[in-house]
Simulated assay, not measured.
Amino acid sequence: MANVLPACLLLLLSADLVRSAGVFELKVHAFHSARALCQRAVDCRIFFRVCLKHSQDVILPEPLCTNGTGLTEPFSADQISSSDPIRVPFNFKWPGNFSLIIEVWSAESSSKQFTEIQNNLITRLATKRTLAIREESAQDVHQGEQSELHYSYHVACDEHYYGDSCSDYCRPRDDIFGHFTCDATGSRICLEGWKGNYCTEPICLSGCSEEHGYCKTPGGCNCRLGWQGPLCDECQLHPGCMHGTCSQPWQCNCKEGWGGLFCNHYLN
């Protein structure tokens, strides 16, 4: 059993690590361009790509998006907005400061890897931004030489993640690993009958001796060896002791008028 529990904990931790801690969402509200979006007017489709990087004073155009990337499905260029927000999950502490790159690409029907053909790139916006968790969506407008882009963005923690950087994890549970719920800040709140940092310690019957008793479930009082009684505060006599008392387990202190090893000899 001792080997099983660490293995279970490792599996649980591994499952939590692969989950995202939060998500950055960007919504394109409108896009206008004075130049032709596609080389061919027939079946002209475009898509938006978002790239998040660590904060840089000079944002380099290399394709590596250190904090994640996301893109929309190609849609008709007749539309001026994307219907769904672009989601970029992250599984690290949200830094607050970041570099944001938004690209608009042409998705020609004959192209399989749209972003590998630089001629398909319509416009690119690169900017440095600051955004805190749970702030209201930030509205922004980018005006290029031949295009205009209206968009908004926000960031939020995933379920069970809390704090200013989505780094505090708390998932309600009621099993061998803990018995608790979580408050609005991600702090553990022990279920009734439990205590401890992870709410794994049961609260014993009121009055149960802390020194001589223990419990495996809330409200119980199990006596340690040599003790007895509802509250485990009564010592057990030496086996065979007839007219004696004890202050520690296995004693046989004779009452007045009695003697012998088992206090079974009447002295008067």
Score class of each variant (00 low, 15 high):
R87Y: 08
E159C: 02
G207D: 05
G229E: 08
C44Q: 07
V28D: 10
A138S: 05
F75M: 02
Q56I: 01
D78Y: 14
C254V: 05
P249R: 05
V4R: 13
K112D: 12
G178N: 01
L37R: 06
S209I: 03
I46K: 13
H243G: 00
S76M: 06
C241K: 01
E210P: 08
W105A: 12
P74K: 14
E159T: 05
E135A: 04
G260V: 08
D174L: 04
D233A: 12
S81M: 08
A107C: 11
G70Q: 06
T245W: 04
N3S: 09
G257V: 03
D174W: 12
F75L: 02
L125E: 14
S147T: 03
T200E: 12
R171Y: 00
L125A: 10
I117W: 12
S167C: 07
P85R: 11
P63Q: 12
F177N: 02
E108Q: 13
P239S: 07
G70T: 05
G226M: 12
K112H: 10
A156M: 00
Q228H: 12
K53L: 07
G244M: 09
G226V: 01
P239K: 06
Q118V: 09
A126G: 06
Y169S: 04
Q236L: 11
S165K: 11
L121W: 11
Q248T: 00
L100I: 02
D84G: 07
C38V: 06
P85W: 15
Q236A: 09
I176W: 15
P239T: 07
C221K: 07
T123C: 15
L13D: 11
E211Y: 02
G196P: 09
E210H: 10
C182K: 13
P61K: 13
D43R: 09
L52D: 09
Y153M: 01
P63C: 03
F92W: 06
V50C: 07
Q143V: 03
V88D: 08
I117H: 14
R224H: 14
P95K: 06
L60I: 01
N253M: 12
Y153D: 02
S187T: 06
P249M: 02
L261F: 10
G68D: 09
D43M: 13
N197Q: 14
V141L: 10
S20M: 03
N120S: 14
E234I: 11
S152N: 05
A184H: 07
R129T: 05
V155Y: 04
Q113E: 15
C190S: 00
A36G: 10
N91W: 05
Q139E: 10
V42Q: 14
Y162S: 02
V141C: 01
P218R: 07
L5K: 05
E25L: 05
S167E: 15
P202A: 00
P230D: 11
Y198V: 00
G193Y: 04
A15E: 11
E25R: 12
L64A: 10
L11Y: 04
K255P: 00
E136C: 02
C215N: 03
T72V: 07
R124L: 05
C241S: 08
A2L: 09
D168R: 12
N3Q: 09
G260W: 01
T72Y: 15
K112M: 09
V155M: 03
C182M: 10
G259V: 04
A156C: 00
Y153I: 01
G219N: 00
G144F: 12
Q228C: 08
A138K: 08
A30E: 13
